[in-house]
Simulated scan of single mutants.
Amino acid sequence: MSFNLANMSFAERAQIEAEKSRLFDFWQSNLGKAKAEAGRLISEKSRRKGKWAEWVRAELDALNPPDFASLVRLEVNKMMAAAANSR
């Protein structure tokens, strides 16, 4: 299977572009909310101590739609990496 768009039919390319557009619109509309949710999850770290990672996984699994959960997961990872780099 080729991932070169030039080797795909017009319909396949249009479908890929439509999905990319949908995901970009979703990202634009929900980034602020995802950052706030990620901040909430990270703020629980000191209180939950060793159980925090398990709790965050459960919280992320409960989020809907899955695209939003992925966006929040990305933001949590970015914030955690930024905190680790600032030490």
Results as ranks from 00 to 15, higher is better:
residue 3 F to W: 14
residue 3 F to S: 12
residue 4 N to Q: 09
residue 4 N to T: 05
residue 4 N to Y: 07
residue 5 L to K: 10
residue 5 L to Y: 09
residue 5 L to N: 09
residue 6 A to W: 11
residue 7 N to M: 12
residue 7 N to E: 15
residue 8 M to T: 01
residue 8 M to K: 13
residue 9 S to A: 07
residue 9 S to V: 05
residue 10 F to R: 14
residue 12 E to Y: 04
residue 13 R to N: 12
residue 14 A to K: 13
residue 14 A to Y: 10
residue 15 Q to W: 02
residue 15 Q to G: 05
residue 15 Q to H: 09
residue 16 I to V: 09
residue 17 E to L: 09
residue 17 E to P: 00
residue 17 E to H: 06
residue 17 E to T: 02
residue 19 E to W: 04
residue 21 S to D: 15
residue 21 S to K: 15
residue 22 R to H: 10
residue 22 R to V: 02
residue 23 L to S: 02
residue 23 L to I: 03
residue 23 L to N: 05
residue 23 L to E: 08
residue 24 F to R: 14
residue 25 D to C: 09
residue 26 F to C: 06
residue 27 W to K: 14
residue 29 S to N: 10
residue 30 N to F: 08
residue 31 L to P: 00
residue 32 G to Y: 07
residue 32 G to I: 06
residue 33 K to Y: 04
residue 33 K to A: 11
residue 34 A to C: 07
residue 36 A to V: 07
residue 37 E to F: 02
residue 37 E to G: 01
residue 38 A to N: 05
residue 38 A to F: 03
residue 41 L to P: 01
residue 42 I to M: 13
residue 43 S to V: 00
residue 44 E to D: 08
residue 44 E to N: 05
residue 45 K to V: 02
residue 45 K to T: 00
residue 46 S to C: 01
residue 48 R to D: 00
residue 49 K to Y: 01
residue 50 G to C: 00
residue 51 K to C: 00
residue 51 K to V: 03
residue 51 K to H: 05
residue 52 W to E: 03
residue 52 W to C: 01
residue 53 A to M: 08
residue 54 E to T: 02
residue 54 E to A: 03
residue 55 W to T: 00
residue 55 W to D: 02
residue 55 W to I: 00
residue 57 R to S: 09
residue 59 E to D: 07
residue 61 D to W: 05
residue 62 A to P: 03
residue 62 A to K: 07
residue 63 L to Y: 08
residue 63 L to N: 09
residue 63 L to F: 08
residue 64 N to V: 10
residue 64 N to L: 12
residue 65 P to F: 03
residue 65 P to H: 06
residue 66 P to C: 04
residue 67 D to W: 08
residue 68 F to A: 01
residue 69 A to D: 08
residue 70 S to C: 11
residue 71 L to D: 03
residue 73 R to V: 03
residue 73 R to P: 01
residue 74 L to N: 05
residue 74 L to Y: 07
residue 76 V to A: 03
residue 77 N to Q: 14
residue 77 N to M: 13
residue 78 K to S: 12
residue 78 K to V: 13
residue 78 K to Y: 13
residue 78 K to T: 14
residue 81 A to L: 11
residue 81 A to H: 11
residue 82 A to H: 12
residue 82 A to M: 11
residue 83 A to G: 04
residue 84 A to C: 11
residue 86 S to R: 15
residue 87 R to C: 12
